[in-house]
Design a protein around this nucleic acid. Structure first.
Lengths: 197, 197, 197, 197
DNA sequence: TACTAAACGAGACGGTACGTCGCGTCTTATT
DNA sequence: AATAAGACGCGACGTACCGTCTCGTTTAGTA
């Protein structure tokens, strides 16, 4: 039998990994073009050619699909910096994260964060698949800075993380002002001022 | 005859203030007991005795009703402090806001903030009816502090606001740790450390 | 001051004949262009500039307005024939009625007849304002024919009327075939064949 | 594998015959107790336990459901007569149809006929699912009578059908007089008088 | 010339039903 | 035995008319 033009998936049994990838791809496109709203299970199914039942076998709900899309993108696009100084590393990380959030994928993160509040299970999932590893990365930077004696000993690392990134998240979520690189620098400066020795 | 204060005389039967109030009351109850999810237009209509059509004449959608509920509560429950010092006022405000967010109504705010991201119109409305006035309150405190020479001149008030409340919002929205009064104090301390002279 | 015909002098502002006429005109336009469906009270009000409340003071419901429109048109457009023979008169009347029903106003009649079945009050009204006078006209023709000895004595006039016009109504209402003049003639011929001596 | 009788094998879950039947049953009850008015889609859904969405997948609107109810009843309750003579068959059929229309289901037919006029799509459906087969039955009787030489050759079968049943329909729809068996006989007699040789 | 009562336009109101959408589950035929 | 196709119950959406009900504004007749 001749292969189909365009490499369209064949129907039938041997398709599991392929179906998974097709869903992620279709979901990514929908999420980037129309946001979380547009990525309905029906739409993903129609676009990917994967049946709804199969999607529900791979993920518990549509939010979980979106979280997978986000986690994959974030890991790929925002690696940890190492500039040699705590101030430099932390400021650079704020800048990178801020830049990432300004992209369409960043907007997706805000939408997922939002979903979290209404749907606790999605929240747990988002934390597991995404947030925890990001916070852990900050803990590494902070520990490094502590060893170098660059930061205040009396400030908890969790509080520090909240302060450094909370302002950015706030801006991202509430949308009262744009999240420009300049703003990100100002925020990093002012926040670090209270955290460094 | 004197023209009405603030407007032309409207023709036709005026909107029923009673219906409006009944909707707000029913919505409040539903929001507090079941969150944003439970406050469907059908449910509000059934509980308030106000018809769906009327609700849709007063508000564009259910989110707008919830925003009105929130705005009313927040205005009533979180007045501006005046302790005599900038540090005191700002720290006290962070504490109050944080305490408010820990209540069921505060949880509602998080849910609305969430909705905002998915629904830009709701975002605009939330900013108009709620956020702008809260931020304006902070600006007043900041200006007072500037006059007293207590805060850094080179920090923009918008950045300061983001830092002071962003961390709280972050915690509220992402739910990685509980928002206790102690945490609120720590956050206020560390953040203010970077903002005061 | 002259006493009003048939009534006490009424206090207050008299009913506006102009409003009445405007409603009839707007309703006629709506009925002819979009049928009974389109002639909603809201639409009539908007088009005529007469308020809904006023319309409901002049008529009990929208069907009553349509009946008035129909009655006025029918009376104006289909007078009784007098050709000199029973066969001629009756056949001519079948032809005229049939031609009238083929017009847009005739279609309206079918729609009202239909409404009748669902809404008994409308049925009573339609019979009073419209049907009774039409049937009475046939009775006159029939009596004339009886005197001339042209029709069967053993056939009840009501039955005769049903047969003569029922076929046309059937066609009009069920729409299985068009109501052409030729068909009307054929129907008149075949039906009269069973009624004449 | 052998192709299915009358069609290609359909993919996916087949439509539930059970749901279909439940809708028909619930609709029948509602129609008989409260007429076309009472048979709203919401009510049918509630009574049958079948969701609105499913009902709308099986039928385009509520009128179509009622038409199916009617067609099923009529086919079951009014079989074609065969008395041996054309006069007998046709007269008997007029009597049977007339008796059927006098029942609550008959009243439903009138209401549907009514709906038809306002809603052309419903009209087409009613003709397809109901009227055409009834008229075909008459054509069979007429042909049989023609072969026996009992009816006039110069009368079209469509015209004959209109005359025989139009009077009954007229009475049914306009409600000017009751549709008694005696009247039905008189109508059959007078009408046939003009159609027989 | 006022007064007053009814009718008026504008439009809000409670109510009922509409037809649609998305969810997450299920059933059948296919491969 | 995993899939695609797609039907299903559920619940909510936002809209359309219905007929009723305020409002503030004419418009005549009455005092």
């Amino acid at each position: 039998m001749v292969a189909r033009p365009g490499g369209v998936a064949r129907r039938g049994r041997p398709r599991s990994a392929q179906a998974h990838a097709a869903v992620i791809e279709a979901a990514t496109e929908l999420l980037l073009s129309g946001g979380l709203r547009a990525a309905t299970v029906d739409a993903i199914s129609a676009r990917s050619g994967v049946s709804k039942a199969t999607i529900y076998k791979h993920w518990p709900n549509r939010t979980a699909v979106a979280i997978d899309v986000l986690a994959e993108r974030m890991a790929r696009e925002v690696p940890l910096p190492d500039t040699g100084s705590a101030r430099g590393d932390l400021a650079e990380q704020v800048r990178r994260v801020s830049a990432f959030y300004a992209t369409p994928v960043g907007a997706l993160y805000a939408q997922l964060l939002a979903q979290t509040v209404v749907d606790p299970e999605a929240g747990e999932l988002l934390r597991q698949r995404f947030l925890d590893s990001r916070r852990e990365a900050i803990r590494v930077l902070w520990r490094r800075a502590l060893e170098r004696g660059e930061v205040r000993v009396d400030v908890d690392v969790e509080v520090a993380t909240d302060i450094l990134f909370g302002a950015i998240i706030f801006r991202l979520v509430s949308g009262h002002q744009a999240l420009t690189p300049e703003r990100a620098d100002q925020i990093a400066d002012a926040a670090l001022h209270g955290l460094l020795r």
